[in-house]
Design a protein around this nucleic acid. Structure first.
Lengths: 218, 218
DNA sequence: TTTAAATGTTACAAAACTGTAAGGTTAAAT
DNA sequence: ATTTAACCTTACAGTTTTGTAACATTTAAA
C-alpha cells in the first residue's frame, strides 16, 4: 500500500511494484487513513512523512497501537531528525527521496522477509536439536518429542535467553502471569518434567541450576 | 558485540556504546568466531563485512542457522551488492562507514526494540485483539482467552495467512503431520471450538467457510 | 561440619484436552 | 426443487496435563 500525496510519485511507485510482481494499492483518501489501512490490511506500507491532514509519523504511531503491518517510511529530506523519529515510532525501515528503485525493491523484500520469518519463527536450533515452538516439538535426528504447553513456554524462554541466568520469578511470571502463583513448587515440578524429556534424547544437565539465582541453559 | 578488525574503529565504537550505557564486547579472535558469539550470546552484534578468515556474510548465514541474535551489518563501501546480500542473509539492519554516531545509536535502539518485542511478546494483532502465540492467549481489552494447543496451531496459521484461503488439508497436515488423519471430522470439531472461543469475545463469522476450498480469516 | 533455605522427586487426583460417533445443517450442482 | 457431499454441533469418554502435597536432596553460609 502506497501512502503518498504526490500522484506522480505514487503512480511511478505503483508501476515499479507491479512490474516486480507485487500487488500495489494507492491510498487516495487521506481523511480516514488509519481505518483504510486496517480495512485493506496490506502486507507492507510505503508511507510518506508529508501527507495531508495527518503527519506520517503520527499516523505510524497510531497504527502501531493496532497492528504490526510493516512500514517503510519515505522521506523527502535526508534529515536525521525524521529518521530518528520514524525509527523510534516503529518504522521497519526508511528510505529517502530520490530513491534508487533497486534499493527500494531490496528493502521491501528484506522487510517482508524479516517480518515474515519473525511471524513464523518456527524452528530454533539448540546444539543438534531443533525446537519447533509453534507446535511444541523437539526433533533430534529422527526422534520427535512433544512438549506440553508449560514445557514449551519454559523451553522457548530459556532458548531465547541462552547463556543467561533466568530467574524463577521470570519463569513464574510468563507461566502464570501476575496471578499470585499457586505454589512455588509448581515451577520446580515443571522444570523437572522438561529436564526428563530432554534427558530422553540425551541432553542431560543442559538446564543448570544456579541456586538462589535461577536457571541457565548452557 | 563488536566484530571488526580495524582496532581504531572497534575501540571507538566501544567507547561510543559504553558512553551510552551499553555493555560492549570486542571480538579479538577471528578464528572461532561463531562459537565465540554463541558463547557470549550478546544482545546484538555489529558485524563488519570484511573480517579476517571468514567473510562476514557467510558468518551471518551460519549464525542464522543457530540463533536469532540481532545483527547490524557494517560495510565499508556503500555498495548495493553488499547491501543486497546482507539483507537477504538475515541482517536486521545495516549501516555504511563512515557512520554518524547518533544514527548508529538510533539504529541499535530500533533493532533492539524490534527484536525484543518479537522474542518476548510474540504478539500478532488481529483487528482489536492481540494473540500471544507463545502462550496461546487471546487478549481483547481486559479479557483474556486461553487457546488449547490445537486451537493455537490453527489460529496462528490462519493469522499468518490472513485474507487467503487455507485448505483443510493444509490444516490437517500442520495439526497431525503426515500420519493418516484419524478422522476428517476432527478438524471440523477443532475449528468449531476455535470459533466458539472467538465468539465469546465478540468475533463472530471471522473464520469463513469456503465450501470445497477451505477456510479464510477475513 | 552443621544447618536451613532452596530446589528436586514422586505419586495422585482434579481439570483440561481431544478424537469419536451420531445426527443436524448448509450450499453447490444437477 | 432436489439431492448429496461438505461441513457443523453436541455429548461423551479416554487420555493427557497440571497443580498439590509429602518427602528427599542439595548447596551456600555460618
Amino acid at each position: 500500500m502506497i501512502i503518498e500525496d504526490e500522484e506522480l510519485i505514487s503512480s511511478e511507485l505503483s508501476k515499479l511494484l507491479e512490474n516486480n510482481n507485487y500487488e500495489a494499492v494507492i491510498l487516495k483518501d487521506f481523511k480516514n487513513t488509519l481505518n483504510e489501512i486496517l480495512e485493506v490490511s496490506p502486507d507492507l506500507i510505503l508511507l510518506d512523512i508529508n501527507i495531508p491532514f495527518i503527519n506520517g509519523e503520527i499516523l505510524l504511531q497510531n497504527l502501531r497501537k493496532k497492528s504490526n503491518i510493516p512500514v517503510i517510511m519515505v522521506t523527502s529530506i535526508n534529515s536525521e531528525i525524521d529518521e530518528a523519529l520514524s525509527i523510534s515510532y516503529g518504522a521497519d525501515d526508511y528510505i529517502t527521496k530520490p530513491y534508487n528503485p533497486n534499493i527500494l525493491l531490496l528493502r521491501i523484500k528484506a522487510v517482508l522477509k524479516r517480518t515474515k520469518t519473525n511471524y513464523n519463527i518456527n524452528e530454533l536450533t539448540y546444539k543438534e536439536l531443533k525446537f519447533d515452538f509453534q507446535k511444541g516439538i523437539i526433533k533430534k535426528d529422527n526422534i520427535e518429542i512433544e512438549l506440553t504447553k508449560n514445557e514449551m513456554i519454559i523451553f522457548s524462554y530459556l532458548l531465547n535467553h541462552q547463556n543467561k541466568i533466568v530467574t524463577r520469578e521470570e519463569l513464574m511470571t510468563i507461566l502464570w502471569d501476575n496471578s499470585e502463583y499457586i505454589n512455588e513448587n509448581a515451577l520446580t515440578v515443571n522444570i523437572s518434567r522438561l529436564r526428563n524429556k530432554l534427558k530422553e534424547i540425551g541432553y542431560e544437565n543442559v538446564i543448570d541450576t544456579r541456586k538462589g539465582l535461577g536457571y541457565i541453559l548452557s
